[in-house]
Design a protein around this nucleic acid. Structure first.
Lengths: 86, 86
DNA sequence: CTGAATTATCGGATATGGCACATATAAGGT
DNA sequence: ACCTTATATGTGCCATATCCGATAATTCAG
C-alpha cells in the first residue's frame, strides 16, 4: 500500500534519500564520510545530486547506511516522469 | 518465491545484470550504447564491472534497458557476503 | 575453416572525481 | 548576539572516465 522501496532514477533522488537516511541515523556528513571512507565534502556533493559521482562511491555510502540498490524493471505506473521536486 | 528484484551491491552485479538484460533484448553493446548515448567501449567497461563508472552513465544505461534502481534497507538474510562469482 | 559481427583494448585529448587543506555559509543551541 | 557544529564552496593535484579513432581478440553463423 505504501512505497516500501525507494525509486532512484536520478542522482537527486539518490542524494535526497541518502540525506534523509543519514539524518534519521543521527549522523553528520563527516561521520558518514568516515564510515564510508570518504570526506565530508564528498558526501555533500552526493547529497546535492552530483551526477558524476563514481559508482563505487555511491555503493560505499549506501552500504554505510545499511542500504543497497536493487535493479528492477521500470515500473510504468510509478510516475513515469519525475521532475525531482527538490 | 523467486527473486523479483535484483540485488546490486557491487559494480560487477550491476554489470552482469546489464549484460544479461541487454542480451535478452537482443542488443549489441554498440546498439545499447547508441540508445543510452555512450560508446560501445563504455558499455564494455560497465559490463565488466568498472567500479569508477559515473553514476549518470549507469542511470542512462539502465533507463535504456527499461530498468531502474530502487534503494532498500540491506536485507540481512540476503547473502551477507557476496563474492561476485563472475 | 572462414568471414562477419561483437567485444575488448590502446593512445591521446578533455573533463571531472575525490584527496588535502582552507574557508565560507548556514544552522542550532544557550 | 554568540559560539559551536554542520554544510557548502574554492584551489591545486593525481587518477581516471569518456570521447575519438584504430585495432586486437573473441564469438558466431555458414
Amino acid at each position: 500500500m505504501d512505497t516500501m522501496t525507494d525509486l532512484a532514477r536520478t542522482p537527486k533522488h539518490i542524494g535526497n534519500l541518502i540525506r534523509r537516511t543519514r539524518r534519521k541515523l543521527g549522523l553528520s556528513q563527516a561521520e558518514l564520510g568516515n564510515k564510508a571512507g570518504f570526506r565530508q565534502e564528498t558526501i555533500s556533493l552526493i547529497e546535492t545530486g552530483n551526477p558524476a559521482t563514481k559508482l563505487e562511491t555511491i555503493l560505499a555510502v549506501l552500504a554505510a547506511l545499511d542500504l543497497e540498490f536493487h535493479i528492477v524493471p521500470r515500473s510504468k505506473g510509478d510516475s513515469g516522469m519525475i521532475e525531482d521536486i527538490f
